[in-house]
């Protein structure tokens, strides 16, 4: 346990503790305010619509916040020294080697995906997906006040993406990943010689289709199997469209917006499924899944 507290209080990990606490607090705050607005006929914000003068009522808040933040920054900077380790040495990789904390969620995904997905495609999808939000969310309600009832899908999806896929993975990557990027529970000692024996297999091998032919070329059956898995997963979005296309919501959303939403949503779910495929089998003594789809050019 001592070592866990030590990791927790490492100066560079303070922001993550802050992140965790503030995210919990603000999620709770949101929940309280949203519940209150959902019960009332008119959101609380709408009753505070009378105008006040910026000088002094807003400026004084800014002024006080500035002083408070400056005080916090000065105390923080006096109390904790920024880390400065050994001089750079290309030949000696520290164990574990970690990216800056805000990228640890992505680094965690590197365990499950090839670098081109985890390092390039997923970040791009995150950025593009975030930018697309205002243009695909056609729900006019919930503009400018806290609410949950009026935009459940939006809040749940974003909350899952931000709280679980981003914050929780950062916390996991910082506090629970030790040497060799092995998983350690809080309280376990980070043993640099710990060896996790993991023999990964491809998903098709669960169904008796070996990925590689004896001469090390790709088995076409495995290729087709993977293509069907991935293609079938994304075609769920198409099926849902065909089933519900005549509802009011879908008519209003339109095919283009729907395609964007379903692609991004399924991609997010797909990431979770791949993580589960990697982690869950070990609980039953089976081999974790390495790839779902192996092709000559890329592996998913």
């Amino acid at each position: 346990m001592g070592q866990f507290l030590e990791i927790l209080s490492k100066p560079d990990n303070i922001p993550i503790v802050l992140l965790l606490l503030s995210v919990i607090y603000f999620t709770w705050l949101y929940w309280v305010k949203a519940k209150r607005n959902d019960m009332a006929t008119v959101p609380v914000e709408a009753t505070q619509d009378d105008k006040v003068q910026v000088w002094p009522y807003l400026v004084r808040i800014e002024f006080l916040m500035t002083i408070a933040i400056m005080a916090v920054m000065v105390v923080w900077s006096i109390a904790l020294d920024a880390p400065l380790e050994e001089p750079a040495n290309r030949a000696l990789t520290p164990n574990p080697s970690k990216a800056p904390w805000y990228f640890l969620g992505l680094q965690e995904l590197l365990v499950y995906f090839d670098p081109w997905i985890a390092g390039v495609v997923l970040p791009t999808l995150i950025i593009v997906g975030l930018m697309a939000i205002p243009y695909v969310d056609i729900n006019e309600k919930g503009n400018g006040y806290y609410t949950y009832k009026e935009r459940k899908f939006a809040v749940l999806t974003f909350g899952f993406g931000f709280l679980i896929m981003w914050v929780a993975l950062i916390v996991l990557g910082t506090f629970l990943r030790g040497p060799g990027w092995n998983f350690f529970w809080p309280g376990e000692v980070w043993d640099p010689h710990y060896v996790a024996v993991l023999t990964n297999v491809d998903l098709s091998e669960y169904f008796g289709i070996t990925t590689r032919m004896p001469d090390n070329s790709l088995n076409p059956l495995a290729f087709i199997f993977g293509a069907v898995c991935v293609g079938g997963f994304y075609s769920l979005g198409v099926l849902y469209w065909i089933k519900n296309r005549n509802t009011d919501l879908m008519q209003k959303l339109g095919l283009v917006r729907y395609s964007v939403v379903s692609f991004l949503f399924l991609s997010m779910v797909g990431v979770v499924i791949k993580v589960i495929l990697r982690l869950l089998p070990t609980a039953f003594g089976l081999n974790p899944v390495k790839y779902v789809w192996v092709t000559p050019w890329f592996n998913v």
Partner: peptide, 23 residues
């Protein structure tokens, strides 16, 4: 330019190796 920085950046920029089309 210490161990922390050079390896964090090595890991970070190595993802660019794997950029589709451009890596």
């Amino acid at each position: 330019w210490d161990q922390l920085s050079i390896w964090a950046v090595t890991v970070g920029t190595n993802m660019a190796r794997a950029t589709p089309l451009l890596g």
